[in-house]
Write a protein that binds this DNA or RNA. Structure first.
Lengths: 189, 189
DNA sequence: AGGGCCATGTAACCTGTTACATGATTGA
DNA sequence: TCAATCATGTAACAGGTTACATGGCCCT
């Protein structure tokens, strides 16, 4: 259901086809919301069945034809209703495999445990780097799509900063954990 | 698949029934991994079909009979294989509805946006309080189940601290966002 | 008398992943 | 020439949610 609103939100900015939607997703909301192409196509069908979007084939010379989706009035209304109505409990689906592994981590050897934390740090650093790389492209994409109002930029800055802060925190948390493990007596095994 | 390993990990500590497993989940891994009762029952069936666990009915006088599950040798081996083999990319399913809402938040009025951040802060504070409440119960439960080795406690402390730090960070992030929204010129609407 | 806890499960449904199928164009 | 990108979709499967069904005990 939420993915449908995410799609509606994008289509409210500009009409696009499924393939391009996927690209936008990967470059913008990807840090807190993922979607696969097959999922996007499925949800676009569902949205069209509800008449929240309409589609039209657009022929192209050198590339395959594409089906461009536009949001309808009913779709806009549904999107705004969703956005305005803030749920009492926002359900956070929790499936953090790393925490799960660390929860049971005492059964691992000291070195194995430390190396898992090190992999975790490496991955977080990769994410930070990827975010920096994406940054220019995101602004380029959003600029092409629509001249974003200052408040649009502000909201995007909020969620970018959230990711940056969280990643930085997690790295220092993991470093502390490693230090603590290293300080435990050798009689671990 | 991962839920199966989470269940195996719990059963490796002590045999238990599905209902009690759910309680343990809610009081321990709940902050980074959730599971519903029907899911637990389903996965227990799947685990038994694979002979990773075995079960036996245990009669009780004043309460309904219960089916107590124990981990088998094959189950222990599978669990340790999973725990030891750290995946190159640990797939983080991302579905953070709050970030999604804020991403599209510029279409909301200033007050509505601020109040969504305030709800977010209130919820995070509730989680922190719930964690503090649970803390005693968790240690009581784990103590009843098994005399936890110091390194078990250390690993649990790691993930608890992670939650605490993250929550504290998110609250101060949200407070900063509110401050920034308040400082924007009045010509928002 | 009524609600909450103990206890187990099934069925339908929704959401997300992976694999398959097709095929032209473009750049290294 | 080979891989990547553009472009759309289906099918099967895996994982998670919600609703239903049952029923005794305990406490207020």
């Amino acid at each position: 259901m939420n993915l449908q609103f995410a799609i509606l939100g994008m289509l409210a900015i500009s009409p696009m086809n499924g393939y391009y939607l996927k690209k936008i997703f990967d470059k913008s909301v990807n840090y807190f919301w993922t979607a696969s192409l097959s999922q996007i196509y499925r949800e676009l069908n569902a949205l069209e069945a509800k008449a929240y979007v309409s589609s039209a084939i657009q022929a192209q010379d050198d590339r395959p034809d594409k089906r461009v989706y536009s949001i309808t009035d009913a779709g806009s209304a549904a999107f705004m209703a969703w956005l305005t109505h803030f749920p009492a409990d926002l359900p956070t689906l929790k499936r953090d495999e790393f925490s799960l592994r660390i929860f049971f981590g005492a059964r691992l050897g000291k070195d194995a445990l430390i190396s898992q934390f090190e992999s975790f740090i490496a991955e977080r650093k990769k994410i930070i780097a990827a975010m920096a790389d994406d940054k220019e492209e995101i602004t380029a994409v959003t600029r092409r799509v629509k001249a974003a109002a200052p408040r649009d930029k502000m909201c995007m800055r909020f969620i970018t900063r959230r990711s940056q802060l969280t990643n930085a925190l997690l790295i220092s948390w993991a470093e502390d954990c490693i230090r603590e493990i290293e300080q435990t007596p050798l009689e671990w095994e």
